[in-house]
């Protein structure tokens, strides 16, 4: 199996005031294509930072991140953006829909960036798949939290990405809604055959993935294969 994400000796520090904070130190792991992978850890363990570095949203201070065969440190920002558009999907804790666009327009954006002429049709199909076909012309402010996250799911899968990063996808949802969203996420993922990387502090959610990476204080304390796999 090919490795879709390869992280080697990753290090990241932030400057806060006059202090340097080492958020990640000597992180090394890899993910196979098609796998499902959870990153867990307490608050402040560096999960979100690691996700950002793996997805090419940020640059590390040291180490190598290779995503979809590309060394991210050798790409400039626009090149990383292009890579994200072509091969990466995102789901965020606070949905991150564009507030001035309708549900349909939000889902269409990644396809339009690819120059797809059938963006709207594909977007509508995806919205129907997530059960929001009749809400396609509603703005995010007109949708509930669960509905917004479903739109975000449709957007994330619109370009058939090779890898999908989800940062606390149920963090802002109640348990029942969250469960529905997670089920939808895994169903869509299975259908698309996408590699899934979920950052969560929910251990139950983590155990539903093939692998779990545990972080604490910016270091890996465990890299486990779960019973599911």
């Amino acid at each position: 199996m090919t490795k879709i994400l390869n992280v080697s000796k990753l290090r990241k520090t932030y400057t806060s005031g006059s202090k340097n904070l080492t958020v990640l130190d000597d992180i090394s792991f890899s993910i196979e294509a098609g796998d499902t992978f959870a990153i867990v850890g307490p608050s402040g363990s560096g999960k979100t930072t690691l996700l950002g570095l793996c997805a090419g949203l940020d640059c590390s201070d040291d180490g190598i991140v290779s995503l979809c065969g590309e060394d991210l440190s050798e790409l400039n920002e626009d090149q990383r953006a292009f890579l994200r558009n072509q091969k990466v999907g995102f789901i965020f804790q606070d949905f991150q829909l564009l507030p001035t666009l309708t549900a349909l327009e939000n889902v269409s954006v990644p396809l339009e960036l690819q120059g797809a002429s059938n963006a709207a049709a594909v977007a509508l199909e995806l919205l129907q798949k997530v059960g929001l076909g009749d809400r396609h012309d509603h703005y995010p402010s007109q949708l509930s939290g669960g509905e917004q996250q479903r739109v975000a799911l449709a957007r994330a899968f619109s370009t058939k990405p090779e890898i999908l990063f989800a940062d606390e996808p149920t963090g802002n949802l109640d348990e029942e809604t969250g469960e529905k969203v997670i089920k939808l996420l895994f169903d869509l993922n299975k259908e698309a055959g996408t590699t899934l990387v979920i950052v969560t502090h929910d251990l139950d959610l983590a155990r539903r993935n093939n692998h779990v990476l545990r972080l604490k204080g910016g270091k890996i304390i465990a890299n486990e294969t779960t019973a599911v796999s």
Binding site: A81, F90, V109, Q114
Partner: peptide, 13 residues
């Protein structure tokens, strides 16, 4: 924030 989202989705600077 919207600009960041667009860049996340693949829009260039």
């Amino acid at each position: 924030r919207a600009v960041a989202v667009l860049k996340c989705l693949g829009a260039s600077r």
